[in-house]
Amino acid sequence: MRQGILLYGPPAAGKDTITEALTELDARYVPFARLKIGTGKTDGYRMGTPEQLAELEARGDVIYRNERYGNIYVVDRPGLEQAMEGGRTPVVHLGQMEGMEQVTALFPAHWVRVLLWCSKETTAQRSPQRGDTDTAARLAAWDATQADLAAHQQAQWELRVDTDVTTPREAAQRIDDIVRATSPRP
């Protein structure tokens, strides 16, 4: 059975850093590159066009899409299928509970759901350190993520990690332990 990891959290909570630690821990973990239609940062994304998005939507291959920072971000069926080829385990980054719900409902796989959290002050410090030029927008997204999480208190998590006090390596090891313990047996 296919499996993946969903990392949910506010901007600068450590999704990229923990994903990097996971890939160093085990080669089967791969970052899932969402399709991005827009401008700005391209690293870690598959850049697309409005026409590509329209084609995916027409085929019913958009699992989840959201708009933030003036861009459109897409989790797509073909992208997830490719990321899972050869028994790989994609690590998908999401900042909206609706995305978590849609991915788990619309793409059959064993999903390990991880809540990564950091304080708003930490986001304010980390954002410019990682090269963001729109820290104010990242802080607004932090507020939106906190409100989103509060509205979904019933959400189920296999793991919650406070990245203010947990190293990326520790978080990756804890996630890997859960993936191994809950991996479906063939």
Rank of each mutant, 00 (worst) to 15 (best):
M97R: 10
G99I: 00
A172S: 01
V112E: 10
A141G: 08
S127R: 10
V114L: 02
R46H: 14
G48F: 04
G60W: 03
E57R: 15
S183N: 06
V92D: 09
M47E: 15
S183D: 08
D16H: 02
A105H: 06
E57M: 09
R68W: 10
A21Y: 01
G79D: 07
F32H: 09
R126E: 09
L80R: 02
Y73L: 04
T104Y: 01
A13L: 04
A58V: 00
A144N: 15
V103W: 01
E51F: 04
I5F: 05
G79I: 00
R46Y: 10
L106M: 12
F32C: 01
M1I: 09
D132K: 14
C118A: 15
V75H: 02
L53E: 13
L53P: 06
L159T: 08
L149C: 12
G99M: 00
A54D: 13
T167S: 15
H152Y: 06
E158A: 13
G4K: 05
Y8V: 00
G38H: 05
R68I: 12
Q96R: 14
T163H: 04
A155E: 15
A58E: 08
Q129L: 14
Y8H: 01
V74R: 08
I5Q: 07
G131V: 08
T133G: 15
T167Q: 09
Q96K: 14
I18K: 08
G14E: 07
A13F: 07
T17F: 02
V92S: 07
E170W: 04
A147Q: 15
A181K: 11
G14P: 05
Q125W: 12
T23V: 05
T104D: 07
L116H: 09
T182N: 10
G40T: 02
E67C: 06
V114A: 06
I63L: 04
T135E: 12
E121N: 12
A136Q: 15
L80M: 08
Q173L: 11
A58D: 08
I72N: 11
A27N: 11
L94G: 03
G131W: 10
V62F: 09
F107T: 06
Q3N: 06
G70A: 07
T167P: 07
T123P: 09
R68P: 05
A140T: 14
D162H: 11
K36C: 03
E101Q: 13
Q173T: 10
V74K: 09
D164N: 09
A33P: 10
R160C: 14
H93R: 07
R34Q: 13
R2V: 03
A58K: 11
R169L: 03
